[in-house]
Nucleic acid binder design. Structure first.
Length: 890
DNA sequence: TGGCTCACG
DNA sequence: ACGTACGTGAGCCAT
């Protein structure tokens, strides 16, 4: 079966150019559009496995559409030279790929593609059109799917005729009617002024085509009628301009676009010229082409010494003396996502042009005692990568890794906390270092994972250690430059050690208690299931949103609320609204609650309890959250139920690990709003916290202008929602959703809030301006988050960035504060020789286990340490509770 | 593997 | 006119 891919070259190149950060090769040639284009192409080839591929380009100045309308595409800014210089490069690269490209004087890429899709329809060949231009949706058919780029270029959304129907309620051909009515500013297609997408869709749903709309203007009202009638001709012309011409005189046949695959050598040479090192790695082209494998090798050839047996005592001595200074890099390879269970393969150390490798089997032998002593010596500084994981992986094998001086991964996170690819390979690319091979290329992935032969493995570890050595120097300087030394060395680095301690300590969980709750749930579940089947008069999988949707909206005929990509939405919000219509609905909500508890919290947690100790050991990730918060995995202990009593019972299973001890939990009171009071300097808000008032009640008093005893529960609830909204970066829509009120009412609340809390309004305005000016926002401890979308022309992207600008300093500063408290608390417990142990962190809460004799002390010490972690213009406050389990500590 | 749903702060 | 509240992780279903 043939499969064609037709790519709109100009459109994709444009998208790539604006989506990618600037990038040049050493000759100064801009390459970002080429790079983006290429990554997208590779993904397409891999995902779609086409038999035929064509890239079409616009050609010539005079496009036939100009005849009769000279302003077509007139308003468009001139293509910047940084992009136009990349077109010839792109065309050469396509040649190297062996991919055909068409352009034809006087026609646009759209028309060429339109013509080929006509052939595809005639021959019934499965075809994918790839473009950034929604106009192309008009080409969709049973054979032809349109892939539209979104979010840059890495992702595409596929549109079949059914998908278009679902999203717009239109047939593919009606897309040109849509454009005819609403126009397209980017192509200078006028449409009818004042008609946007919403209005246009409404008209088309009623009348079907531009012509029918124009013939029925009588049924329109007032201004709209007038506008449509005065711009009849514009609409007709716009429709014509938006119509893709599908009869281009091509002198080619389908055979001309057959794709046979690329020649590795040719492609390797082309990539090398462009300095696309990561792509060479990705396609494993190192051995290919003119330069053979040399280019991927480190600039200076590493001299690798493998320490394999006790005959290598001398080499080991060399290694240890070389490691005395701080100019080194260490890398410990620990395989597996969960560090508590990771398998350690070995350790490599790079100093100068030398690398020493110690396989794990050797590391554990008697003659390596000196090395182990060095690793365990807190006074011997070590530079590593993901040392948090290393500490856990080695720790479970009896080696206490201490004395981390610098961690390249942690530093990279602070330098850009939104970076989701914190691998050595990616960091080397970003910092212009010679590339480290992808782990996937060395080990394979998934079921194909395999440790390679020793030579390959040792080389890989050496190259990584060498990369750590080089990146350490660069990143230390970067942290310094950004004023982040204190954040790194005084907070995050020490915290990493504190976290590892908590994780290894673990928290004791009573399996029997979970099992007891589990069997209660089981009987409630089976009762709910049979009742649901009875009311539905059929059996189906309640856990399948698809089947549930069919039952609710088709069989039972309940009114569908909103839709998702794949069908009816059945989330809790929808079901709440449906509850009055049918008694099955509350049962389904109940079923959802129960099955969530059963699968995630009973079965899920039971699987994580270590049989030897009865404990659960979570793993806090310190390099994930963009705001600086921690996250918790394997299992997540930061989302144990509390809001509903049924789920809260789960907490009864979390108990102290020593008999007679207690669980003590302390949480910050309103930390985010206190932080907001501090950074905004708003006098009223500060005043409220200085007097330790109930903040939601106080907000209600001020916003509604009433006295404390006049605030009813509804007013307080609204005020609470407004306070939440303020922290999140408020929008009238968001608030209206949350409170189930109209947008207008929500907007009024917000306006009233800002009238009263003018300092907060000023903060919100200032922080957005600051983000626009600097490109980033910071927390009190100089944690930084970049907001590249703050200047985006796309409303959505920009609005999102603005809300993030408002929220991140607040959420991030709160994260800074509790992290400080954790480091202090750990020190204090140690210094005072206390037995109490810090076990968990849940964003604004710390959980300890405490022996009876320390209870009185800890009840005072924990909240005072938390409150004193950072001095603000308002007091910080923490409440403390304790009990025989986590449930009782409330 | 991605989408949906839902648990937490 | 645009379509949203901020930040996470896990289980299950459908593909």
């Amino acid at each position: 079966m043939d499969k064609w891919i037709l790519i709109d070259g100009n459109s994709i190149a444009n998208r790539a150019f604006y989506a990618m950060p600037p990038l040049t090769n050493s000759a100064g040639l801009h390459t970002n559009a080429v790079f983006g284009f290429t990554t997208m192409l590779l993904k397409l080839l891999e995902d779609e496995k086409p038999t035929h591929v064509l890239v079409a380009f616009d050609a010539g100045k005079v496009v036939f559409r100009h005849e009769g309308y000279t302003e077509y595409k007139g308003g468009r800014a001139k293509t910047p030279s940084e992009l136009s210089e990349q077109f010839p490069v792109m065309k050469d690269l396509l040649k190297a790929f062996g991919i055909s490209q068409f352009e034809l004087s006087g026609y646009e890429a759209d028309d060429i593609i339109g013509t080929l899709t006509r052939l595809a329809d005639e021959q019934k060949v499965e075809t994918l059109v790839v473009t950034g231009d929604k106009d192309m949706l008009q080409l969709a058919s049973d054979n032809v799917t349109i892939a539209i780029t979104r979010k840059g270029i890495s992702e595409v959304e596929h549109y079949s005729p059914a998908a278009i129907e679902e999203k717009y309620g239109l047939k593919p051909m009606q897309i040109i009617d849509l454009k005819g009515l609403m126009g397209d500013a980017s192509d200078n297609i006028p449409g009818i002024p004042g008609v946007g997408e919403k209005t246009a869709l409404k008209m088309l749903h009623e009348f079907g085509t531009v012509e029918e709309v124009l013939a029925n203007t009588d049924s329109l009202k007032g201004k709209m009628k007038e506008k449509v009638e005065t711009h009849k001709d514009d609409a007709i012309m716009s429709k014509k301009l938006a119509t893709i011409f599908r009869e281009v005189p091509l002198e080619h046949s389908a055979e001309d676009i057959r794709y046979e695959g690329y020649q590795p050598a040719t492609l390797a040479d082309a990539f090398r010229k462009l300095e696309f090192k990561s792509l060479i790695e990705r396609l494993d082209l190192n051995g290919a082409g003119a330069e053979g494998g040399e280019s991927a090798a480190p600039a200076v050839e590493l001299n690798i010494v493998v320490i394999e047996s006790d005959n290598d005592g001398e080499a080991l001595k060399d290694m240890l003396s070389a490691l005395q200074g701080t100019e080194h890099g260490l890398y410990v390879e620990a395989i597996g996502e969960n560090p508590h269970q990771a398998e350690v393969l070995g350790l490599a150390a790079a100093v100068g042009d030398k690398a020493y490798v110690v396989p794990v089997s050797v590391l554990q032998q008697p003659f390596a005692a000196e090395l182990r002593k060095w690793l365990e010596d807190a006074d011997k500084p070590k530079n590593g990568f993901d040392t948090h994981k290393t500490e856990l992986a080695l720790g479970w094998r009896g080696i206490e890794w201490r004395g981390v001086a610098f961690d390249v991964q942690l530093a990279a996170y602070l330098l850009d906390p939104t970076d989701t690819n914190l691998t050595l390979n990616a960091l080397c690319d970003r910092y212009g270092q010679s590339s480290v091979p992808h782990d996937e290329a060395v080990y394979g992935k998934g079921a194909k994972f395999k440790v390679p032969d020793n030579e390959t493995l040792y080389r890989h570890l050496s190259v990584k250690a060498d990369a750590v050595r080089k990146l350490t120097v660069l990143m230390r300087a970067d942290l310094e430059k950004r004023g982040m030394n204190e954040l790194y060395y005084e907070l995050e680095q020490p915290l990493s050690v504190v976290l590892a301690g908590m994780e290894r300590q673990g928290i004791k969980v009573e399996k029997a208690e979970l099992e007891r709750l589990g069997s209660e749930l089981e009987s409630k579940l089976s009762a709910a299931v049979s009742e649901i089947y009875r009311l539905a008069e059929m059996e189906f999988n309640i856990g399948s949103p698809k089947q549930l949707g069919e039952v609710l909206f088709e069989k039972l005929g309940l009114p569908a609320q909103k839709k998702t990509k794949t069908g009816y939405s059945t989330d809790a919000e929808v079901l709440e609204k449906l509850a009055p219509y049918h008694e099955i609905v509350p049962l389904i909500l109940h079923y959802r609650t129960l099955s969530k508890l059963q699968s995630t919290y009973i079965e899920g947690l039971l699987k994580e309890v270590r049989p030897e100790t009865g404990k659960i050991h979570t793993y806090y990730r310190q390099t994930i959250a963009a705001t600086g918060r921690l996250s918790s995995q394997f299992p997540n202990l930061q989302n144990i139920p509390i809001r509903l009593e049924e789920g809260r019972q789960i907490r009864k299973a979390f108990v102290p690990s020593e008999p007679g001890w207690y669980i003590l939990a302390a949480d910050y009171s309103q930390i985010e709003l206190r932080v907001l009071a501090h950074i905004s300097g708003d006098e009223r808000l500060k005043e409220a916290f200085i007097h330790d008032m109930d903040i939601h009640t106080k907000t209600a008093m001020d916003v509604f202008g009433v006295s404390a005893d006049q605030v009813d529960s509804n007013m307080r609830r609204s005020a609470k929602a407004v306070n939440f909204g303020i922290v999140y970066g408020i929008s009238d829509f968001g608030l209206s959703q949350n409170l189930n009120i109209t947008r207008k009412e929500a907007a009024k609340f917000i306006e009233q809030y800002f009238e009263v809390f003018q300092g907060v309004r000023k903060y919100m305005d200032d922080i957005v301006m600051q983000a626009r000016r600097d490109g980033f926002v910071t927390t009190l401890l100089e944690r930084r988050r970049y907001l590249p979308d703050i200047k985006a022309s796309n409303f959505n992207l920009r609005s999102f960035a603005e809300r993030t600008a408002m929220n991140t300093p607040i959420q991030g500063t709160a994260a800074d504060i509790i992290k400080l408290a954790m480091v202090r608390m750990d020190e204090t417990l140690r210094e005072r020789g206390l037995k109490s142990r810090m076990l968990l962190q849940v964003h604004d809460e710390l959980v300890f286990e405490v022996p009876e004799e320390e209870l009185e002390l800890m009840k005072e010490l924990v909240p005072s340490t938390m409150a004193g972690a950072l001095k603000l213009d308002v007091p910080l406050k923490a409440d403390v509770n304790y009990g025989v389990n986590w449930y009782e500590a409330k």
